[in-house]
Each structure stands twice: as C-alpha cells, then as structure tokens.
Design a binder for these strands. Structure first.
Lengths: 337, 337
DNA sequence: CATTTTTACGAAAACGTTTTCTTTATTTTC
DNA sequence: GAAAATAAAGAAAACGTTTTCGTAAAAATG
C-alpha cells in the first residue's frame, strides 16, 4: 500500500491536510499558485489517493459490477468489451462476477453488492432458477441495475436486449424459404430465460405463418453437458423422420450439431440445413460455413453500460424505465443454402 | 448504499459497536450467546458491512486486478475464467482492465493501482512499447504482481508462461515432417514480446535442426489491422516462390491466412500447410480443420492466480521468484496433413 | 476610514469499520 | 476469603479522505 498520504504531503508542503485535499480536487478555495505547488509535490512523491478513504467519505465507489453466467463465450466476451469501453471513458472500474449458470452464485453476488461496493450493476441472468426477489432487492437499496441479453420479465427493470423474436422468426423463415419442411429448434432446458422464450416464440410464429405443423418432438431441449447433447442430437438426426433444418438458439448447440452430423455422416446443408444464433467470428471458415444470426454483443455491452451510467449520474431511474432492443443480423452462408 | 450499519445494529441490540463488530468477526472476546443474537439480527436486517470502511481500516482490499490487452479473444477469456475460479475460491473480487495494446493505458492503470485499490495484480503485457519501469514500481509499493503469457524479460518477476520455444519448435518440425521446405512464420510486429521472441526462436531452431535455410523473407511481420494483413498475406502467397507451410504465432493470422487462401484459391493443405497457436474451440470444424498448438489458457489463469495468492498470503515474494512454464498441446488436423 | 465582502487557508467532524486498551463482573487459586 | 486470573463487554483511537465551518488577512465598497 502506498505509504504517502495527504498528511505526509501536507507536512512536506507546510500546508494543512484540508488545503492539500482541496487543491488536489481543484477547489475554488485554493489559490492558483498553491494548487500548482501541491500538484507538483504530489507528482514528485507519486501520491496516489487511497480509494477506500475516498469512497467511504464520498459514498461513491467509481466502480460497477458485471454479473454474467460465463466469460469464455464469444457473446459475453464481446459484451464485456463494450462495457469496459464505456466504463473506461467514464473513469470507472469494473468488477466481474461469474455465476456459472448457478442461481445461488447470482444471489450471493447480488446480496454482497448491496454493501455498496459498486455504484451500479449490469446483469445477464443465469439460466437456472426463478428470478425476482434477489434482484429487486438491489434496486431497493438504491443501486441502479441494468439487465442485458438475458433479462427478467418484470416491468420495473431497465433492459438491453436483442430482437430475439424477430431474429428467430427471420432465421426460421430463412430455412423455410430454403425448402425446409421439418425444422427443429435447439435450446438449453432448465429454468426460464427471456431469450429462450422469445426465440422459441419467433420460431413458432414463422412455422405458423407458413402453415407448417408445430411438432413438440422438433423442439430439442439440450443441457449444459456437451457430451450428452452430442448423443441426444445424433439420436434425433438418425431417426427416419429426422428434421431437415435446424434453428439453434445458442452457439454451442450449433457446434454440437456439426459434430453430430460429422459422426453420423449427415450432409450439411444437403440433408440438414443449419442456422444458429452465434457471435463466432470464424463462422465463415466452417465446413460448411455456418449461417448465423449475430446479436450485436459489443453494442449491447456499450448500450447497457451507457444506460447504467445515465442512471448513476442522474437519479432518474425511479420514474423511468428504459427498454432498448437492438437488432441482430442474419448472415446467410453455406450451411443453409 | 445500504443504510444499515454497525451503529444501527448495535442500537437495535443494545450492545456497543465494538462488541457487534467483534461478534460478527467471531472474536473470542464475545460469548456464544451474544454472537448468536448478533448474527440473527444481522441476518434479519440484512446487514452488509461497508467494504470501504473495512478495507481502509484493515489495509486489505480483498481484490485483485487483471490487466490484459483485450478480452474478446479466446486465450484471454479462458485465462480470466481460470483466474476468476481461483479468486472466487479465495473470496476475492476481480477488477479487469483492458490496455488495448496501448502501453500508455498499461502505465496509467498500473500507476493507479499503486493507490492500494488491490492486493495483487496479474498482468499480460501489451505488445507495443518497452517495458520495465512502470511495472517494477508496483513491486516497490509492496503490491505483489504476477505476469502471465506475455511477460517481461526481467529477472525479478514471477511469471506463468507456455513453453513457447518448444511449442513453436514442435509446430515447425511437424510441418517439416509433413514435407514443407519453405515455412513462413507469421507474427505481429511492433514492440517486443517475450512470446513472439521465443516462438520465433523455436521456429528458427527447428529450421536449423533440419538444415533448412533461414530466410528473412519468410518471416512475415503483420500488424493489428486485419485488412492490411489480408492484403499482405495474399501478396506473399501469390509469389512464385511462395511458402509451402505457415506457422502462425497468433490465432488471428491463421484466420487471415485462411481468408487469403480462399480469395486467391490456394488449397490448404495441398499447396500450403498451416498450423497456428490458437485456443479456438472450433478449429476442428474449419474447412479444412486447423492444426493448432493450444496453450493451456485456463490452467495458466489458474496457475498465475494461485501464485499471486501465495504471494499475497505469505510475504515470500521478496526472496523467491517463481517461473512456471506450462506445456501447450499440438493437435494435428487436416490443415497440415 | 470603517464596514462589508472576498480570498485563502486551517480545524475538526464525518464516513463505517477494526482494534487496542480499559473496565467491570465473574471465576479460579492458594 | 483475599488475590489473581479470566471472561465479556465498552470506550476510544485509528485508517485517509472529504467537507463543513470558522477565521484571519486582504480587497472592495460606501
């Protein structure tokens, strides 16, 4: 810990602690000459203010928290990149917490953050567990919170999301127009997630528009276990009445689909057309190149951080709730040709 | 900010502030009965201790910082995952700072951290700029620092790295054994990086072992501009005496290589064999599947965090310097067959 | 020139903990 | 049963800032 503090600085300068503090904060109460002297000495001694003393006194942490399910994931890595960009511009620090899809981690993290460690929180919910109480309690303590991507379906919370319904609708429609009659929908089961829900609805709406039958067997609920998913998908794709198209609501299931097809020798796109929600930058290098709906993860990060800072700076978050929806982009590649 | 503090709690309990504090910290000075009473009330009122008051008094932040060039990158995302795992086990918070390969960001971040905001720092250097002073100054203030992956070549600092020399040697040898005679080495220029340096040496050593000529024209220095790299690589691959193999020291250049080959219709691996350092989980899905040397990013994160905590907990870091080297794994796929 | 205002600074309280030092009451020891 | 030891709790200082308030000297005002 830096040993040089205001007291030491003030002794060196022959000034009072309070004057030095004011000088450093550029107070009008201090003459220009003194300020210059103080700044010079602070520079010379490499004075670094103690952040805890400052935060304690000012009741401001200059820090935000990001609570996400995982980080080794293109989507969240990009989102954090956007968040960090805005936070850095604002001079804020960023604490990151991973829930690993476990709602207990989410709860304990959020509870902990009520202690005032941060001035605001960005959350993307984990898939397991019912949400509500533990999230709203943060708002009660006056700490602004913004949800992004995976948001709770409550009225009172500001959110930044992708147009999941439309994106999913478009993806499904794209496969239909490519000739698919039996389109499977891949999702991760367990708990309730707004994204999953909306993507599913978009898929169903597209089926309906084109008068395709809704078939419960075509909705494939996978888990977080890659091996199990691979097994499940192989079974599905081996059936006689197998699907001829796949809309994958998450990236990893598209990858499992590719592996499954490789193993059972099913040709993409000839026998199975594939499109997936994904932020993979290398989708175009796949064999075959993977058609994707890409959520604007970086922009979502930027937008949600910006919203959070608006809430932190002005205290408008009691009488106004923002819900921003950003558009994903559908990129046709060979897997759905 | 949580409005309920020790004072409030003590009033509610009819105890003194100090007794309540001691009870919460499970001090032997407080009777079991009183402790129970205090715990219950703290629970009931959802008391969350003010982290700044605590940190100020105890001179402990229970926080570490991670300073990395970027986060939207498989390697660093995985490394952070490992770091977070260890930090979470230890009950520590993690602050993340991105330098975006700009040494000025690195400097100002490190300078800032001298203020005592964190108990330890994990750094992976940015590629631009000469290193030394600003990093050692942290150590002078007594804040432990561990470097991972991109480390300074100084004696006095603990590091966790991959066996860059060996990995690169093996990759090059692998291409030679596959029949390559003119192997290009792709790297990002500018500044000085330990990884780049060691990988280059491994490449050269392999050439030497197999009596292949060292050709400066085969060492391709790229930039951080993808479009420029693509252009550069296309030119290289179009020459009459083009290379027949490529060792890419970073993932993104392998990707640019694929794009370049696609555009000029050069067949991988028939006309150009490719192997790359990479943490891409989807390398096996590429067309053709990409041979990789994969640094154990997750383990590197875990190992470097563990080392940092050893330094934080015991103060052994003055008389001992750890240098841990973890092995990367070479995975042969079709791009180098 | 006497008064008010402004300028520049210092003293001290406050933020919410933790910890050291007392203090009182109870138990142990000879 | 008096002295010593222990147990349980409280008072107060300390951590390093920020900010309110006070105050002296200088400048402005009439």
């Amino acid at each position: 810990m830096s040993n040089i503090n205001l007291k030491r600085l003030s002794e060196e300068l022959g000034l009072s602690i309070s004057s030095v503090s004011k000088a450093l904060r550029d107070s009008y109460e201090i003459s220009a000459a003194t300020k210059k002297r103080v700044l010079a000495m602070a520079e010379k001694l490499n004075y670094q203010p103690n952040p805890f003393a400052s935060s304690l006194r000012r009741k401001k942490s200059i820090t935000i928290a990001v609570v996400i399910p995982e980080i080794a994931n293109n989507y969240f890595a990009l989102a954090i990149d956007g968040i960090q960009l805005i936070a850095q511009q604002k001079g804020y620090h960023v604490l990151t917490y991973l829930t690993h899809e476990d709602v207990r981690n989410e709860e304990s993290t959020v509870r902990h953050l009520q202690g005032g460690r941060v001035d605001g929180v960005l959350v993307s919910l984990c898939s397991d567990g019912a949400h509500g109480k533990h999230l709203l309690s943060l708002q009660e303590t006056g700490i602004p919170i913004v949800f992004f991507d995976r948001v709770p379906e409550l009225q009172g919370c500001p959110t930044v999301t992708t147009d999941d319904f439309d994106s999913s609708f478009n993806a499904t429609e794209h496969l239909i127009k490519a000739g698919c009659k039996k389109i499977a929908y891949l999702c991760v089961s367990g708990g309730y997630l707004s994204t999953t829900h909306n993507r599913m609805k978009g898929y169903l709406a597209a089926l309906k528009k084109y008068a395709l039958p809704e078939d419960a067997k075509l909705i494939i609920e996978c888990s977080n276990d890659d091996a199990a998913n691979l097994h499940l998908l192989k079974n599905v794709f081996r059936k006689k009445n197998r699907p001829d198209g796949v809309v994958s609501s998450v990236e990893k299931l598209a990858i499992s689909t590719y592996y499954a097809c490789n193993e059972i020798n099913l040709k993409i796109p000839q026998q199975l057309k594939v499109i997936s929600f994904s932020c993979l930058r290398t989708a175009s290098l796949f064999s075959p190149s993977l058609s994707t709906i890409t959520p604007p993860a970086f922009e979502i990060g930027k937008e949600s951080a910006s919203m959070l800072f608006r809430m932190i700076e002005k205290k408008i978050f009691v009488n106004r709730v923002d819900k921003v929806v950003l558009k994903g982009t559908l990129i046709e590649r060979n897997s759905s040709k």
